[in-house]
Design a protein around this nucleic acid. Sequence first.
DNA 1: CCATGTGAAGGTATTCACAGCC
DNA 2: GGCTGTGAATACCTTCACATGG
Lengths: 220, 220
Amino acid sequence: MRYHKIPDETVRRLPIYLRGLMVSADQEREHISSQSLASFVGIEAWQIRKDLSYFGDFGTPGVGYNIYRLARGIKKTLRLDVIRRAALVGVGDLGSALLAYPGFRVYGLDIVAAFDIDPQKIGSTVNGVAIENAAQLDTLRRRDISLAIVAVPRDAAQATVDSLVAAGVKGILNFAPCKLVAARRIKVITLDIAMELARLPYYMPRAEQAAETVLKMDDG
Amino acid sequence: MRYHKIPDETVRRLPIYLRGLMVSADQEREHISSQSLASFVGIEAWQIRKDLSYFGDFGTPGVGYNIYRLARGIKKTLRLDVIRRAALVGVGDLGSALLAYPGFRVYGLDIVAAFDIDPQKIGSTVNGVAIENAAQLDTLRRRDISLAIVAVPRDAAQATVDSLVAAGVKGILNFAPCKLVAARRIKVITLDIAMELARLPYYMPRAEQAAETVLKMDDG
DNA sequence: CCATGTGAAGGTATTCACAGCC
DNA sequence: GGCTGTGAATACCTTCACATGG
């Protein structure tokens, strides 16, 4: 399986395994079986083994996976083996929360710059990061920042992306609720929070009203 | 196709169409073709037609889709045709940002209650929503709130979910970076923001360092 | 004996191409 | 002529079962 392209769905699950391994690493044990990891992260054991088989022999039959070695392997595959510097554009409510969020560090991701257009915000510091004028986005290239988070209002999102791409950014995580266009070589992942909440009701059993209706029907 | 189960991937795309239709509705036109909607939301036209075919005949050949009627149809399918009341647990940086976020309204979702354990926060108001004591989560049932957003630290997430389920909540959007267990009938969607950012590097072309390495190899 | 890694089977989603309707 | 809705083909992903190796 070593020569096979890694399926997108596997790439989506790798960070989950990594997260699980990090937490497991705190325990004393040096190895972990696909079975243990499975119950910890909530994904079936055979799925984990299959996923890992796409890019390396990390396990030892009869023993399991060396936690440290596997974590390294996944990081390398995801290209998270170097510290990645990221920029944030848009320091509103969500942007500020992201600056304060400690979770990125786990993956070797570091928000080292923040931009906004509000003169009131420019110059101030949020969580140790100075807020710069969004007009200076073009400085990103020489600062070796190729990853960006877009947390600006929808109407400003496309222009922001254009500036980021011009500044040499190669990957963008977008929180604005709209489609963004960029050259094929640029990877854009859009994460619309409201949309995730919006698909919950579909999976929920019919609400109280429905139950009430059933009761009434029984009564009648 | 009307009798077929709607694929999960279709359910995931429906909110995108809905979002696109809402914005399109501002224009004068009454109808929209799968082609126009496709270029607007960034999904292929045949994919849209196929998705819509799973749950109704909304289009008119030669004309397109009536924007209003289609939006209604999608809302009904996603069970977003009634206003849904949601509760937020954990009013930290992210939680506060979510309270301020206007995007939920588009889908008929309304955060009407917020909870925290910090005495400093309890009693205060954020964006018009009073922050209550998290110990009072059990009041959700009689307040007709069956949707919840979990934005508490990882260590508190599972206990929060347990309380929510006990309080009659049927759907949970979780921002804590961990697996959560709940009865099968409860739908839990976990959204780990850092994880999304973490899979960006995989799709990015090799960084400057790599390019340099190649150059050196050429030199040697 | 235990746990991995993987062919093969089965299932689901994507993509195509076009018949049918306005 | 234009556009929808959908069977059929294709591609992709999941799931199983077991051969293989420590």
